[in-house]
Computed example of a mutant assay.
Amino acid sequence: MPTLEMSNPAALPADWRDFVALTKPRVMYLVVFTGLCGLLAAPAMPPLVLGFTAILCIALGAGACGALNQWYEADIDAKMRRTANRPLPAGRMDREAALHFGVGLGAFSVLLMGLATNWLAAALLAASILFYVLIYTVWLKPRTAQNIVIGGAAGAFPPLIGWVAATGQVATLPVLLFAIIFLWTPPHFWALSLFVRSDYAAAGIPMLPVVSGPETTRRQIFIYTLPMVAAAIAPWPLALTGAVYGISAAVLSFVFLVLAGRVAANRATEPADMGPEKHLFAYSVFYLFALFAVLVADRWLA
């Protein structure tokens, strides 16, 4: 279990780039984008400055999650090749600084969201941060192969938060957007974990490919893709969106399903032979961006 000791007692002074790296900016792009789409798809638009502030708060909240995750998992990150050069395991920052940065960023984002928009949006933002840090990072990730299934809820909050920041209330469409990301997370993340499973095995993290093997993981990827496709298309027959979104969602989801089928049929055990998994992982990122972009276009064209 991680301790409060520094991974490297001779830590070098951190600069601004290390604090940016703590926020996991590559992950933040998708979080901010889906939050923005939730806000833009809402029936009522807040003033520009308040809308910008709401998205800024979502970004800061996501950054807080990244910083606290890296604070807690510094020892684990040091054991994995793809994370060993992060500020903490590389010894460029001490863990106390990362902890204070993450807590301060999270508290500020929630307070600012409440003051700028409404306290329901602030409460959802706080819930997403606490869920990611306490439920996923601290409890689920080191204990169960189903960590990403339940923990995926943390990344599903942004469109719901964006909608509530604009309207002050929850509605069916943002709940479906939450469900789409929640169901999208396992196939997206398991596709990645299949070709980096040696890292997770070395760090002792019970990801599904490590615990149950590639065959079971590939089958689960396909199984989770089915309800994700249903949730993605559902807004159209429920008359929550128009044909622009509905047809686009059907086409995008069909491609996702085909790629998930290719993954399920693959029997490779070496990362070099896991082309279908790499293709699905890359497409899954494009899929979510495209799906939410089409949603906003559909709402604005209506």
Rank of each mutant, 00 (worst) to 15 (best):
H100N: 14
N69E: 02
A116M: 10
A107E: 07
G106H: 05
L99V: 10
P89R: 01
R92E: 06
T117A: 15
V110P: 02
Y72N: 09
A97W: 02
D75S: 14
T117P: 01
A84C: 12
P87S: 08
V110S: 04
G61R: 03
F108Y: 13
G66P: 05
G104E: 10
V110T: 02
M80F: 11
V103H: 05
G102S: 09
A78C: 10
V110I: 14
P89M: 04
A78R: 15
A74P: 00
R81P: 00
G61E: 07
K79T: 13
G63I: 03
M93W: 08
N85C: 11
A62S: 15
L112N: 05
G66R: 01
A64Y: 06
L115A: 14
M80L: 10
A116W: 08
A64S: 15
F101C: 05
G114H: 06
T117M: 12
L112F: 13
E96V: 13
A62L: 09
F108Q: 05
A97I: 10
L115F: 13
T117G: 04
D77V: 11
A98T: 02
L105C: 07
A90V: 09
L112H: 06
G91W: 07
A116E: 06
G102Q: 03
G106C: 01
A62K: 00
A97H: 12
Y72C: 04
A84I: 12
L105V: 04
G61C: 05
A107G: 13
L88A: 01
A59P: 07
M93T: 03
W71L: 08
A59V: 01
L88H: 10
G61P: 09
K79H: 13
F101T: 04
A116N: 08
G102F: 03
A64G: 13
L105T: 06
G66K: 01
G106A: 08
A67H: 08
A74Y: 07
V110G: 00
G61W: 01
L111H: 08
G66N: 09
A84N: 04
A67T: 06
Y72F: 15
R86Q: 08
